[in-house]
Amino acid sequence: MNAHSNIAVIDLDDTDLTAANQSLQSKNGTEQNAHMRVVNPRGSHALAVGIDAPVDIEIDGNTGYFCAGMNKAARITVKGNAGQAVAENMMSGEVRVTGDASQAAGATAHGGLLVIEGNAGSRCGISLKGADIVVGGDIGHMSCFMAQAGRVVVLGDAGDALGDSLYETRIYVRGKVKSLGADCVEKEMRDEHRGELAELLQTAGFGDADPKEFRRYGSARNLYNFNIDNVGAY
């Protein structure tokens, strides 16, 4: 780790992944801030996982699977594309991807904000448990599958089977939805929804987008209770 004007630089060309993650986790359990920069990530998996401190981490380049997984409090920016399951199980903090994200972005995340400036692949926000996800481009098929809480905002289009078996996550899509999954329906956009959407867009850096152009999707809540007419199927 070399110090450059208060920013600690970790070069994965000469630092192994475990040592790099240990450095990134060095403030864990404290309230201390630090600014760290990772260069040459070369698509490595599980980079900057398990951070539990309000630190700023910038990753210059494309990352592999599980980047920023389990994040708590940190602000992590990937300047490039992220592989599968970026920010999976995030608890709090902010993760930003300036390029595209692969499948299962933000899977099971409980809190915090995930911003993907480009497109997200399939199963974005699968089983989401309370985090907010804002995607500047499109999201792939089966996104928000069984998503339970939190909000997902998509400035582009959504793929097939959006929100299949959805619980209480609120989904806002500006573009086209290829198809809705089982029990996911379009819902009325009321003032309270335009209000929270405007706030989310502003926070995520998409303040120029007009909330009036979005549609809201949510659970029809028909799968919540067992339908006695289906008893013959069991």
Binding site: R42, G64, Y65, D100, Q103, S122, H141
Partner: peptide
């Protein structure tokens, strides 16, 4: 299967990189 396989290709930093649709 993973982006890691591309990192040494010439010009990869300016390549169009995407996930094929199902």
């Amino acid at each position: 299967s993973e982006y890691r396989a591309f990192v040494d290709l010439p010009g990869i930093e300016n390549a169009r990189v995407w996930e094929p649709e199902p």
